[in-house]
């Protein structure tokens, strides 16, 4: 599903964010990216949906070399990749349902599809009762559920999550992880960058550890360190 070959990404001022990364992730896997701040976790995630372009090496997503993807095809790539962030990135003037519908509207999905899929996905994330609330009326955990609903409503092949529990208390985080686990069980590949030792140690999934841009550990059913 995802394959990196010799990928190096250098930011301006010779800051090496990713150095010679070779990674292969199969369809349906759940992978944690761990490592200290600045170790390259976010850069790796941004490389996967082509928000960043590698300086060297090749990245394959769903069999396609995304470095060779022409810019007009990037949106099509992103329709297959859902993204979840620490700060949710919800639109404050739209309701929960509108925030999720927005993701379908802007890729040209017809209204009847939107009207069917939005309630279904909100049911899945457990927010059926709060469809008409605005983001600022929700708790952090609920906002993150909306953001996951928006990322998953188009049924992407891959879900990228960058510190999705970074702003949440441990109890709420467990709920979010259950949801991500459930999404993973539908066959969606999940790649999640995290600092949350508790979560990694409980879930016991594959762990990739980064340190100063290098992959220093790749362990199936791993722990945080």
């Amino acid at each position: 599903m995802i394959k990196l070959e010799n990928v190096t990404k250098v930011y301006k001022g010779d800051v090496v964010a990713i150095r010679d990364a070779d990674i292969e992730i199969d369809k349906g896997e759940f992978v944690f990216l761990v490592g200290p701040s600045g170790s390259g976790k976010s850069t790796l995630i941004r490389l996967l949906n082509k928000e960043e372009v590698p300086d060297r090496g090749q990245i394959f997503v769903a069999g396609k070399d995304i470095a060779k993807l022409s810019s007009w095809k990037v949106p099509l790539l992103r329709r297959n990749i859902g993204c979840v962030f620490q700060d949710y990135k919800l639109l404050p003037k739209k309701t929960v349902a509108e925030n999720v519908a927005f993701a379908l509207e802007v890729i040209g999905r017809p209204r009847h599809v939107i009207e069917k899929q939005v309630p279904a996905i909100l049911e899945l994330v457990g927010l059926s009762q709060k469809m008409d609330r605005f983001p600022n009326e929700l708790s952090g955990g609920e906002q993150q559920r909306v953001s996951i609903a928006r990322a998953f409503v188009n049924r992407p092949l891959i879900l990228l999550a960058d510190e999705p529990t970074g702003n949440l208390d441990p109890a709420t985080s467990v709920g979010i992880m259950r949801l991500l686990d459930r999404i993973n069980r539908t066959g969606t590949t999940v790649v999640m960058a995290t600092h949350d030792r508790g979560i990694v140690d409980t879930m016991r999934r594959r762990v990739l550890e980064l340190d100063r841009g290098m992959i220093v550990r790749d362990e199936a059913r791993g722990v945080y360190e």
């Binding site: 007009w72 099509l76 329709r79 297959n80 990135k89 639109l91 927005f102 802007v106 890729i107 928006r150």
Partner: peptide, 17 residues
């Protein structure tokens, strides 16, 4: 900016934006 960022993330085409 924020709406545009979200549109790009979910794969809206440039022309649509």
């Amino acid at each position: 900016q924020r709406e545009i960022e979200v549109m790009k993330l979910v794969g809206a085409t440039n022309w649509f934006i």
